[in-house]
Design a protein around this nucleic acid. Structure first.
Lengths: 265, 265
DNA sequence: GCCCGTCGGTGCGCAAGCTAACACAGCGGC
DNA sequence: GCCGCTGTGTTAGCTTGCGCACCGACGGGC
C-alpha cells in the first residue's frame, strides 16, 4: 500500500556540465549521440540530484522536464484508488523519464518515483522539444527507446498475469541489477512489494528462498546478488525478452560510429 | 492455450479508394487528418479485408505494412513458450496496428491477431515513412496515439495484477464495445480466455454471472450487451483510465478544424 | 545505553483461480 | 435426420497468494 507522498524539491547541483569518464555518471542514450548533437544538448543539461523516496512526476502532472538518469533508477508506478500499486516500467541510465513530453501528451496517469537515489540530467521541455523537432538522431533515439520501454511494459503485464512471485522477484532483481553498477541494491522489501504489487510478506518469503539457496544476501534494505546465473535460471522468460529488446537498441547504436542517426551527421 | 497458427494471406479488395460517409468504414486517426495530408495519404491506402482468425504480424516479424482498422479489431498478444498468452492491447478504428514501424524497431515480440473480422486500410512501410518523415500532423498524430496505446498497456498490466476475472471481463467487454458499432460482439469464450490469459472455464463462470444479472446475453460466439451502465458499474477503474486517455486524444484533435497538426496546414 | 521507528519473519484462515476430466448442446454438412 | 465439431457447463481437488495479526530484531538518535 502506497501512502500519500510528498513531491520532493530536486536540487540542481551543476549546470551545463557533463561528467565524463566515470561510467556511473553517464546516461547511455546521451552517450550515443554524436558530436554536433551533443554540443547542442550538453550545455542545456542540468545534473540533478535524485533523492531517496522522491517523486519526479505525480499522476496527471503536466511535465516540465525530462530526466536522463545516470546512477539513479526511477520506477513508473500506477497507484489505484484503494492504494494498491504496480510498477509499469523501470528506467535507469539506459533510458529517459518523461516520454509523454515528446509523445505529445504532456502527462500520464502514472507516477514516477525514485527506486534508487543518485543523479539524472534534466532537460527542460523547451530545450527538449527544440532538439526533438530537428528530427535528427535525438528524435530517432528517443522513439527507438520508447519502443524498448513499450516492450518492457508489455512483458511486465504478461509476467503479472502468469508468473509466480518467486519468478517475478527474480525478473525484478535482474532488471534492477542491469541498471546498477555492482551487485548491491539498496531497497526495502516493502518498496519491492509496492512495485511488484504484492504483499510485503510474499516478498519476504520469496527473498528468503533466494537467500537460503545462496542466490542473494540481504539485510535491512541492502540486497547483494551473489549468484546471478542462478537468478537467471530461476527467472521466467520475461527478463530475457526485455533484455533482448534493450540490447537490440544499443547494438543498433554502436555499429559504426554514429548509426543512431536517422540521418548521418 | 494458443495453438500454432497460420499466417493468413490478406486480400486487398480496393486500391487507393476510401469509402466515405459510412461510419464503420472509417478510421478515426485518418479522419482527423486535414485536407492536404489526406490528399497525399489516401491514394496510397489499400482497403484490405481482415478475415476471422487471421494474424497480421507474427512475433519478431519485420513489418512491411501498417494497418488502420475500420470495422475490424486487432489484439496485440504475447504468447509464452508454454503456450499461455495475454493480450497486450486492443486496437480498433481509433488506432493503428504496427507502431514499431515508425518507432524504428520494425518488429515486436508480440503477435497481432484478428479479434473481430472486418476491414483495415493498409499502408506500406515506404509510404508510411515518407509521410511520417515530413514531421507534420501525421507524425504528431501517430505519436500521440502511441501514448494512448501505452496507457492502455500499462492499465492492462495493473488490471492483470489486481483485479478479479469478473472485473477484467467487464473491462474487456467495454473496450471491445467501444471499438464495435452496436452492442453485438462475435467472439467465443475460448478466444476471450486467451486474451485475458485465464482459463476458458473462468470466462464461462464470469460470463454466466453477467448473463444471470441481465447485463449480457450470449450464445455460441455471439455476445450482446444489454445493460452497458451495469457493465461499467461492475468494472474496475482501469477502463475509465484508458477511456479518458483516448478521449483526451480525440478531443485534442477536434478542437478547431485541424489542431491535430504540430504545424498548422 | 535506552527507546522507538523501521524492517523483516511467521502463522492462520480464506478465496480466487488453476489443472484435469467429462458432459452436453447447438449447428452445419452430408 | 444423423454425425461430428465446436462451444459451453460442471465438478473435484489443489495451490498460490491475500488479509490480518503479531512478534522479533536491528540500528540511529538522544
Amino acid at each position: 500500500m502506497i501512502p500519500r507522498n510528498t513531491l520532493v524539491a530536486l536540487s540542481t547541483t551543476q549546470d551545463g556540465f557533463m561528467l565524463q569518464g566515470t561510467d556511473h555518471r553517464e546516461n547511455l542514450l546521451l552517450r550515443a549521440l554524436c558530436t554536433d548533437t551533443r554540443e547542442r544538448i550538453y550545455p542545456r543539461l542540468k545534473l540533478t540530484e535524485i533523492p531517496p523516496d522522491g517523486v519526479l512526476y505525480e499522476s496527471g502532472d503536466v511535465m516540465e522536464d525530462i530526466f536522463f538518469p545516470t546512477d539513479s533508477i526511477i520506477s513508473m508506478l500506477y497507484v489505484m484508488e484503494d492504494g494498491h500499486s504496480a510498477e509499469i516500467a523501470m528506467i535507469g541510465n539506459e533510458g529517459v523519464v518523461g516520454i509523454a513530453l515528446f509523445m505529445g501528451g504532456l502527462s500520464t496517469p502514472s507516477r514516477a518515483i525514485v527506486q534508487s537515489a543518485g543523479h539524472a540530467y534534466r532537460l527542460s521541455r523547451k530545450h527538449l522539444m527544440a532538439e526533438f523537432n530537428l528530427h535528427g538522431e535525438f528524435h530517432h533515439l528517443l522513439l527507438r527507446y520508447t519502443q524498448t520501454l513499450i516492450t518492457q511494459m508489455a512483458q511486465t503485464s504478461v509476467c503479472n498475469r502468469h508468473h509466480s512471485i518467486d519468478q517475478q522477484l527474480c525478473r525484478w532483481l535482474l532488471l534492477s541489477m542491469d541498471r546498477h553498477n555492482g551487485d548491491n541494491i539498496e531497497i526495502t522489501q516493502e518498496l519491492i512489494s509496492n512495485l511488484l504489487g504484492v504483499r510485503r510478506e510474499s516478498v519476504t518469503k520469496a527473498a528468503n528462498k533466494l537467500q537460503d539457496a545462496g542466490v542473494i544476501q540481504y539485510q535491512r534494505g541492502h540486497i547483494t546478488v551473489t549468484d546471478r546465473a542462478e537468478l537467471e535460471r530461476r527467472c521466467c522468460e520475461c527478463y530475457a525478452v526485455v533484455r533482448k529488446e534493450s540490447d537490440r537498441l544499443f547494438q543498433g547504436l554502436t555499429d559504426p560510429s554514429c548509426s543512431a542517426a536517422a540521418q548521418p551527421c
